[in-house]
Structure formats: C-alpha cells, structure tokens
Simulated assay, not measured.
Amino acid sequence: EQLRRWQELTINQGFDPSLFSMANSATCIWHHDDPRISFAAIRPGQLISGVNVSNGELKMPPNLYLERIFSVCSEIADVRFVKKDQSLSYGASERMPEDGYVATLPFGYNDGWLRRMQKSSVIINGKRMPIIGRITMDQTMVKLDRKYPIGTRVTLIGKDGGE
C-alpha cells in the first residue's frame, strides 16, 4: 500500500516514479530485490553507522555484515569509596548494595544520556559496570569492580574489549 501510494503521488505530481525513491535503510536491507521499488536514490540513515535499523527485531541477511563504526565515550572524573546502604544520587533512589567504589562520569541527561538509562551499564576496560543511582543533568554514577584512576576511559556506546 505504501509503495502504491508513493507511485501514485509521484505520477500525479508529473514525476517519473523510477527516478524517485522511497528506499530508506530498511528497504535497502529487506526489500532490495523488489522490482517495483526504484533505487535511483536511497536514504541509508543509521545503516551507514552499522546499526540494525529494526533494533534487532529482524535478522540481517546472511550476506550483509554490519559493524558499528561509532562510539560515545567519557572518562572517570571522580572515584569514591562508598559504604554498604549509603544513599546515592538525587532522591536517594538507590543504596549502595555493598562496600565498594563508585565513579562519577561527567555525562548526564543534558548530554543525551536519558534518565531511563539508569538501569543500564557502561564499559570500562572491557568490563560492564552498572549505572547506579539517578542520572543527573551532567553526571552519571557507576558501581566499579575495583578502584580505577581518574581519567580512565568509559564507553557508553560502542565496543571495548569483548563487550
């Protein structure tokens, strides 16, 4: 139906439908062999960054290998030893589950790291570390497996080691 409407629209505007395209990332991947679709121009979108645009809901064709080519990184700005049950972040929304180290990253919702990412993780030296406490406007706290030096690279999006 979408294809029919597109072709009708272009013809009604006096355009040759074969010269115009509705081929976005998903069309390029999963409908590339449909003879009704023109690929005179395409809009590859996030595909050029190596992202499966279906968020993993559709399997990639076996002949197409994607690799993410970008990352978002920060670094540890502060490290503190925190006792078990100590409240963390705004609203004391979480407590430290055990004695250990917590890092503060200078990266928060003002930078696009949404508060709903609170239960996700980051990667430090090839290991996943959980975000702990509420993400603030300009900071995120991470529970560490050991003490890391200030300035240690933290991967928020991308690869580090095997993660």
Score class of each variant (00 low, 15 high):
97 P>W: 06
95 R>Y: 11
94 E>G: 02
104 T>P: 04
98 E>G: 10
92 A>I: 01
80 R>P: 00
105 L>H: 01
110 N>Q: 15
104 T>S: 11
103 A>C: 10
115 R>N: 12
107 F>K: 07
85 D>E: 06
81 F>I: 06
106 P>M: 08
82 V>I: 15
84 K>L: 01
86 Q>N: 14
88 L>H: 03
91 G>Q: 04
110 N>G: 15
98 E>L: 04
105 L>F: 01
83 K>V: 06
80 R>G: 04
108 G>D: 02
107 F>A: 04
110 N>K: 15
108 G>M: 05
97 P>Y: 06
100 G>C: 02
89 S>F: 02
93 S>E: 13
112 G>E: 08
107 F>S: 06
80 R>N: 14
97 P>V: 00
84 K>H: 11
103 A>F: 05
91 G>W: 09
108 G>V: 04
83 K>A: 12
104 T>M: 09
109 Y>S: 05
95 R>M: 07
83 K>H: 13
107 F>Q: 00
85 D>V: 03
113 W>A: 03
84 K>N: 07
87 S>Q: 15
97 P>Q: 07
84 K>P: 05
105 L>K: 03
83 K>S: 12
96 M>L: 08
86 Q>I: 00
85 D>P: 03
106 P>D: 15
97 P>G: 09
84 K>F: 07
101 Y>S: 01
83 K>R: 13
85 D>W: 11
102 V>A: 00
106 P>F: 05
99 D>E: 03
81 F>G: 09
96 M>C: 09
100 G>T: 05
95 R>D: 08
114 L>Q: 15
89 S>C: 02
108 G>H: 02
95 R>W: 02
97 P>C: 08
101 Y>H: 15
87 S>K: 14
98 E>K: 15
83 K>C: 12
87 S>H: 13
105 L>T: 00
98 E>Q: 12
94 E>F: 04
108 G>P: 02
94 E>W: 01
108 G>N: 10
94 E>Y: 04
82 V>F: 00
91 G>T: 03
91 G>H: 08
93 S>M: 15
106 P>R: 14
84 K>S: 13
97 P>M: 09
99 D>Q: 08
96 M>E: 01
99 D>N: 12
104 T>F: 01
116 R>M: 04
85 D>I: 00
82 V>G: 03
89 S>V: 06
83 K>I: 10
114 L>V: 10
116 R>A: 10
87 S>A: 13
95 R>F: 10
94 E>M: 04
113 W>E: 10
106 P>A: 10
111 D>G: 14
82 V>C: 09
93 S>T: 10
116 R>K: 15
84 K>G: 07
82 V>P: 02
90 Y>S: 13
101 Y>F: 11
109 Y>W: 10
99 D>R: 08
114 L>H: 14
94 E>Q: 15
106 P>K: 12
88 L>A: 00
84 K>W: 02
